[in-house]
Structure formats: C-alpha cells, structure tokens
Amino acid sequence: MEVLQLLVSGLANGCVYGLIALGFVLIYKATEAVNFAQGDFMMLGAFVTLGLTNAEHMDLPFWVAAPLAILVMAALGYLLDFFVLRRLFGQSQTAVVILTIALGFVIRFVAGVIWGHEPQTLESPLSIGDINIGGVVLGMADVAVIVVTVLLTLFLFQFFQRTKLGLAMQAASQNQMAAYYMGIPVKRVQGLIWGLSGATAAIAGILFASKGAIDPNAGLLGIKAFAAAVIGGFGSLPGALVGGLIVGVIEPFASRYFAAGYSQIAPYVLLLLVLVFRPNGLFSQVRVKKV
C-alpha cells in the first residue's frame, strides 16, 4: 500500500515535469533550440493566474482566470519570439541556449519584484479535496494534473502527426531553407510554436501551483524537467511524458529507500546514465549528417 501511495504521488509530480518537458520538446521540434527558461515560464504562468484569481489581487473566478492566463502566456511566448528570438535566426544553438538562460534570470527577477519572494498559494478549486481509492489517498490536484497532462500530450502528439501546421513546424525545424522554398512561413510558424509552448507552460504552472505553494525560484524545477526530456529523447512528445513520469516516480522511492545524501541526486544520476549509454534518449531519432 505504501508503495502504491509513493507511486501515485510520484506520478503526479512526474506529470508536472512531463508538462515542462513538453514545452522543451515543442520548441526543440520546431526550432532545434532549447528553451532553458521553460521552467521560469511555468513559474510565470502560475503567478499570472495567481494575480488574476487570488482575492488580494484581481479576484476573478478561477475558470475565467485560468484560460486568460493561458492566453497571456501564449501571447508572451509569441511576442518573445517576435521581438527577441527572431533576431537570432540562423545563429547557433549555443546562442539560443545562453539567451534563454539569461531570460530565465530576468523572468525570475521580474516575478520577484512583482509578487515578492514569499511562497504563495493559488486559490484554485483543484486544490480542495482528496479522493480515496482503496486506501490510496489522491489530492484532487493530483488527479487533475494526471488527467490534463495525458490529454495535452495526446493532443499535441496528434497535432504534430496529423495537422498541416504541425507538419510544417517539423519541416521548418529540419531545414529552414528548404522549408522556405516549400512555401512554409518559417518565422511565423516558429512564433506560433513559442506561443504554444507558452500556453503549455501556463497549464503546467496552474497545475503545479494547485498542488502546493509557488515562489519565483519554482522555475528551477525546469532542471528536473531537463532530465525528463533527455530521458525521453528530446524530439519525442510522448517520450517527454514518459521521461517526466520516470523522474517523478524515482524521486519518492529514492528518498524512501536511500540515505538522505543519495536520494536527491537520483534523477541526475539517471540523466547522466541515459546520456552516457543512450545519448539520444530512450526514444531516439538521430541519423548521421550527410556530406
């Protein structure tokens, strides 16, 4: 029973990692870059929702505030691409990596100035109540996280496989020049992807904040989501979810069964092991460059 409880709480945490990892994968699929600020996007999404719905701020109903926050974050993602990332067009991945790390710092600073550094709780209907299934206690928030994550992953997966826009996004990432020639508006497509990943981050943030408190440093969770994305193989959406679940489940078990010093390093050790033995993730898609 205890094992089951650990498993369930691990799955719920893992879904949050998975959601952030989805954001990484989205951007990676579309631009071959990695948004190191994705965790901070999530934090910002949570705070925007909190600012819209909490009683001491704007006091909007949650079901109005949440979609609004998702829209705001999507717009932010798009604008960020429009004003900042588009200027890096054609520069190396390294430039984007460093830029987004810096962006994370800036977002953290701005969030701290606006909302302060004390942990705050989101007044969310999701955070009220527990469900007891045969002795395993599940918070409502945990259930919501799992359900939403699975649905979102399925949706995005279908989107990339089936829709024209999704395919265009993949094409744009693999060869910008060729995609141009095929009539794909590469820049606009990339902007849309950044918007989509902003929306995903907002959803992750709302769910994360429903599970517990949020503060400007919550974005550092993104590092664990890296582990998730890498384990899943950077280019795969379902892989990101599976990777997130693996990391999420490992954590509670490690802290239950390993000594204190060893438990928190478990996800990173796993990350390094995967990188060393399956450098392209468990669901890889890498071929050799042609000359």
């Binding site: 990676y28 990695v34 991945q93 390294t94 990596v97 590092i223 890296f226 582990a227 890498v230 950077f234 390093i265 990173y268 050790v269 990350l271 390094l272 990188l275 060393v276 450098p279 392209n280």
Partner: peptide, 20 residues
C-alpha cells in the same frame, strides 16, 4: 563519456554535473 554528446545534450549533462 560526455564526448558523444552534441550541443544541448552536452550542456544539459554538464548542468547535471554541476548539481551533482
């Protein structure tokens, strides 16, 4: 072991290293 990693993978592996 890190040699087999390119670009972002190397960056992420080294982040893990720093945390470890």
């Amino acid at each position: 072991p890190a040699l087999r990693l390119h670009g972002i993978y190397l960056a992420i592996a080294t982040i893990a290293l720093s945390i470890l």
